[in-house]
Every structure is written in structure tokens, then in C-alpha cells.
Design a protein around this nucleic acid. Structure first.
Lengths: 204, 204, 204, 204
DNA sequence: CATGAATGAGGCTTCATTCAT
DNA sequence: AATGAATGAAGCCTCATTCAT
């Protein structure tokens, strides 16, 4: 699997949020990619360092441990996408528009620039300790409350008949599930996917 | 995390399919549980052996390697649940009934007796080599074709307007996603969940 | 320093107390020798394993960590020598005889079969945590109380004029100090050394 | 153990001999303290630099290596204390007075301002190479000859009956041993300790 | 079949030292 | 002189797997 670790590949990875072109940012980009592609446990710090183009010992100038790198990847993912969700809500005039905006934003976060980091957030959640989960859980709650607020609005408008919590969980599942099959260069665009997903959510 | 590994806990785990009370079956039951709870890479063969109540060296009389145990868990999961899907289809008179049957069966496979093995199948898919994936992929294709056939029937009846492939993927995502939040002893029953999920699938 | 680590050398090391010819005992013998000769921090587990004639990983079947090996060496040293002190006291009819017996026993423990382990006990005391020191300190207190009791008897007999605590500390220092210069194959025997040391202690 | 490394603590450390307030001197003061408190091997150059108030890389503008710092600490200790011994001898009119002067001076060197450096000299002797020991050994021989000369004088006066070499080693042991138990702010003063130690040496 | 001691490759991490700025 | 990021060798330890009993 040496092909996964060339420093060249690193430049093709998106540099969003704190994953800029600083040494720390480069480590996080490579980590998000490798932890997603190979899994956290199966990725060695040497592979990670090789992809960044430094020696393995140098990683520990930027992060205290391999664990800390995983936490930072997750943190960057959730911070960045929380911003995206806020923007999505602000740009929608009606609850229905806001819901569609959230769906599109979440689909983009999962299949777009932050796909690796988001996958790591979901798949490697149990690789971090409960203590490390605390700050992330706080942000996740804020993230989820955005959704539930919009769904509650729709229910009051009579456009949704089901329990907001269950409904959100089912939508969430179908959206996050796209990570397992959606190809960004395939025949379906994010825009189309958003339409279908929105239709399913609204019962159309 | 020693509480995860007591031999007593093993007896509480469901013995379905090939996970019977033979030595091999006990290993698979324990493996499904531990690989789900801790992850495959973070579970040691010693922990596994301890839960089964044998020494770690003895595991290798029943399985060639730790890898082989993981493959067997996945195989049992998919074989067993393929049978469940066939039964679900046979017991439905109309396409809509058959869809609801599939949804219920899949929700049960994910949250019921086979929950651990199913989670392992999804989460640890990349832990096995492509060669090891081949036989499982064949069964998965059969599994998926059952769904697409039913959805195609519904489309021909005019009851569904969207692409069967995408539709199935979105339903699949919301169903598998329940593994992350559904509590079998919570306030929502599988039956109710089936209703909501079916409603969402049918656009109601 | 490869000459320090041949398995042959191991057989020449004394096998007292728990340092018998079991795998565990061989590790302790080699550890006492190397930790004394090179220092604990400068001795690698590979060197230790090489001297025992096993692989470095195998060490950890017998001891949880390098730390634990150090603690075990210290523990063996103190347990064994506590026994020796008890014997020395029992075989003396008068306080003066008992004092001489203690001095001889301590000189032998420091320069005889347990010399390496005793040196480790003194030199590497700060390499173990305070928690690890607790059980050893308890034994050390018993050890020291044997001395103080005898000195108190001598003071009551009028044969000693000074504070028992300070006196014991000074004797102790001169005795333990022999580790730095006494050669067991030199011109002075332990018996002679005992006489001189006893003379100094009694002010003769 | 961060409390061991504050730059404030450095100012409380005695500045004797070459350990003045130059950059080099500050490093040596901190090194003597940390090497004694934690051991040479367990003290990192980062800790040392932190206590001095500089960056670790800057240490190497003043010393070629960590080794060189250790050697310099030892050298300062022995040079300074050799002077003290010469002074002690000069201020004694009789051999007995000179012996008492030596004992007092040595007790002060071990428990007074040079305590850290002296402890390092004893405890870390084996951490330096034989080549590095050479210049120190030369000074040590001079140091010891001062003692033996005085003891020889006492023997000729008939005030001492034992072998000067052994006698010196035993006294030396009891004196150096005070490092392990003597508290400079405890109930015993150096003056009193000198009396007891002198009494023991003279057989009184 | 079961045991459990032993293996040995490989993982994460530390740390003295260097060097461009 | 000072900095501090980077190095890279080396350290401790883990763990799937083997095999003599």
C-alpha cells in the first residue's frame, strides 16, 4: 500500500479549516486521508510521516501522540461542518428551504472536501476515550439541534407528520450512508442527490 | 475493559446460524461481540480467548488466523440475513408488503440477534483483503438484488417515482444507521420503526 | 559492552532467594548484574534478554514491564537480607555479639552473593515510583529496627555512648560504602573487615 | 515533576566555584540539582534548559554534549572541595585537629552548598567513560592522599591502631552516607555530626 | 485438541543533537 | 549566541502466531 503514502498525493487533498499548509495542517490532511482509507489502527505513524514528507519522530513536535492527531482530525471536521450548517440555515427563507440547505450541506461535507475527516469521525469514534469525546460531543449536540429546530418548524407547518428525532436519525443515516457508495465523479451530482434525499425526507 | 470479556457474558449472546454452542460457534459469538464493541484491531486474541474460556493458543486449532475469524463472523452474518430476506419476501403478497417485510427484516438483523455481526460486517469491511471480500460480495449482490427487484415492481406499479438504485441506497443508509442510535429496550419498537421507515420509503 | 551480556556469565551469578534457575529467576539474576554494572536506565531490555538467552519480547511474559523487573530485584534483595539479619541476631548470645553478627551479615550481603541486588537497591532507589517504594519501605523499617534494638541494648549496658539513630546511620554508611571499594578477592577478608568495622563501631 | 524545573528555583541554588551566574554557571547549577534529584539519565536536556530559562538547542553553544555537562559538574565539585580540604588541613595545628577539620569539611561538602554536585559525583560516576574519568581520578587521588597523610600521622602518634586505607574507606563511607539521611534543617547540626563522626573515627 | 511459554516483527514514543534562520 | 523545528537512532512494549508437551 505504498501508493497511498506519496507526498505528492498530499497536495491533491483539500486544505479546509485548520488543515492548511502549515506543518500541522499537512499532518491533519494526511491523517484524515490515511485513517479513512486504512483505518486508524492500521495506519502507522511512519506511513503518516512519509506522506507528510517528514520523519516519524517529527510528528511529535506537532502532536503529543497518535491519539491527539486523531482527535484533531475529528475536531477540525466537526468545527468546519458546524460552520457550514450555520451558513446553510441562514441562506434559507422557509423551513423547507432550510431543510434542503442542511441536506445539501451535509451531503457535501460527507462527499466533498471533508469526506475523509467526516468518515474518520464516524468510523473511528470508538478509538478515542470518553474524555476525548466530551468536547466533540458538545459540538455534535449543537449540530443536531440545528436539524431538530428546522424539523420542528416543518412539523408545526403541518408539512411533516413524524417524530422529529426519529426522522432526523433516518435522514442522517441515509445521508451519512452515502459515504459508502456515492462517487463524486459518477453519474449523480450532489445537487441531484439533494433533490432525491429531500423528496424522501418530505414524503414526496 | 475486563468486563467485556467474561465467559459469563458469552452465554447471554445470541446463538444464531453457525454461531452455535460448538467451540467454533462460541469463538464467533465472542468475536462478533468484541469486534463490534472494541473494533477488530483493538481486540486481542487473548481477550477473545478469555471470553471463550480457553487459552489464546487454542484459538488457532479452530481458525487459521485472527483474520479468518473476522471473515467467518462476516460470512455468518450475511448468510443468516440472506435467509431472513428470502423469508421476508416469500411472506408478502404485494410488492408493498414485500418492501415492508424487507425493511422489518433488515431492521431486525441490524438491531436484533445479529447486531454485532452486522456491525462488524459494515465497520470492518476494509480490514479484510479484496480476496477475502470476493465470496462475501457475491452474497451481498444477491442480497441487494432482492431489494432492487421489489423496488422495480413498485416503480412499475407507479407507487415509487425515483431511481431504484439510489432509493435503495438511501433506505439502506437510514436502516443501517439505526445501529448507531436505536436501543432495543428503548421507547420505540422495531415494529414502529418499521412503520416510520416504510412511510419514508413510500413517500407518505 | 557486549562482554557483559553473554549467557555464560549468567551461570556464574549466585542464585539466592527467588533468583533461582526458573526463567523468572534467571531474569532477576541478569537484571541485578546489569542494573548494577551499567545502571538501570543504561541497560536495555534487549541486553537483559540477551544475557538470559531469550528474546526481548519474552521478558514480558514474566514481568509486566522493565520497571517491574527492577522492583522485583529490589524486593528479592531486601527479603533475602532481612532473613540473614534475623539469623545473625539469633546466633548472638550478647548484644555485642549480635552487633558483630549484624555487621558481618550486612558486609556479606553487600559484598557477597547479593552484592548486585543490594547495589541496585541503593543506587536505583529513585528510579521507582513512591507507590512502588511502599512495600519495600515497610521491609526496610523492619530491617532497621533490628539494628536499633541491638544498639539500644548496648547503650543500656553502657557500652555505647552515642545516639542509636545517628550511630546506626554512620555504621550503615561505612558498611554500604564498602560496595565502592571492597574486592572480595583482595587482601582483606570479610572476617577481617568485620573486626575493623566492629572495632570502629564500639570505639575500640 | 515540573516543580523541579522552574527558573525561580535556580536562583536559590548555591553559586560556588565555577557555578557562577554566567550562562555556563547557571547550566551547571541546574544540572547538579536535576542530575541529583532525578538522575542523569532521567533528566532531559529540555528540562535542564527550561530550568536555566533557555531553549534546549542553546545548551549546545555552552557545552558540546549532555555528557560534557555531567563531566563539568563533577569537575567543579571535586576542584572546589579539594580547595576546602587544603584549607581544612592548613587550619589544624595537630593531626587530630586536622582530621576533625577534614571530617567537618567533607560533611559540609556533602550536605552543604555542594551537596548536589557531590551526590552526582558519587552516583553518576559510571555514567561517564573511563577516558572522562582520568582527570577526575587524578584529583581524587590528591584528595585521598590528604586524608591518608593525616591518618598516618595519627598512627605514628599511636592514636590510631588500624590500617589507614581501610580506616579512611570506612570513615569515607559513613561521611558520604550522610547524603542519604542528613537534613541540614533537622535537629542535628554539622558541628554536632562532626563531633560524633570524629569520636567514631578516633575510637572514643 | 489444549496448553502456555516463547517468538520476533513491528508499533508508538523519546530525546540528544543539528542547523538554517 | 539564541532559537526551535527537524532529525533519526534507539527504547519499551504489544501481540498474532508457533510448537513442544
Amino acid at each position: 500500500m505504498n501508493h497511498l503514502m506519496s507526498p505528492e498525493l498530499l497536495h491533491a487533498l483539500p486544505a479546509i479549516g485548520g488543515m492548511d499548509d502549515s506543518p500541522r495542517g499537512r499532518v491533519l490532511r494526511a491523517a484524515a486521508y490515511l485513517f479513512h482509507e486504512q483505518g486508524y489502527a492500521r495506519t502507522t505513524v511512519r506511513e503518516l510521516a512519509q506522506m507528510v514528507g517528514i520523519q516519524s519522530g517529527s510528528l511529535f513536535h506537532h502532536f503529543k501522540s497518535k491519539d491527539a492527531i486523531l482527535c484533531a482530525v475529528m475536531s477540525e471536521a466537526i468545527i468546519y461542518n458546524l460552520q457550514q450548517m450555520h451558513q446553510a440555515i441562514e441562506s434559507g427563507a422557509t423551513p423547507a428551504e432550510r431543510l434542503k440547505g442542511l441536506i445539501r450541506a451535509e451531503l457535501e461535507s460527507i462527499n466533498g472536501n471533508t469526506s475523509h475527516a467526516m468518515a474518520v469521525l464516524v468510523y473511528e469514534w470508538n478509538a478515542i476515550t470518553e474524555q476525548q469525546q466530551v468536547p466533540l460531543l458538545a459540538m455534535r449536540e449543537e449540530y443536531e439541534s440545528l436539524w431538530v429546530n428546522v424539523l420542528d418548524d416543518l412539523i408545526q407547518e403541518g408539512k411533516l407528520k413524524h417524530d422529529a428525532f426519529i426522522w432526523r436519525r433516518l435522514i442522517s443515516g441515509s445521508t451519512f450512508g452515502t459515504a459508502l457508495w456515492y462517487k463524486s465523479n459518477g453519474r449523480v451530482s450532489i445537487a441531484e442527490l439533494t433533490e432525491v434525499s429531500f423528496a424522501m425526507a418530505m414524503g414526496q
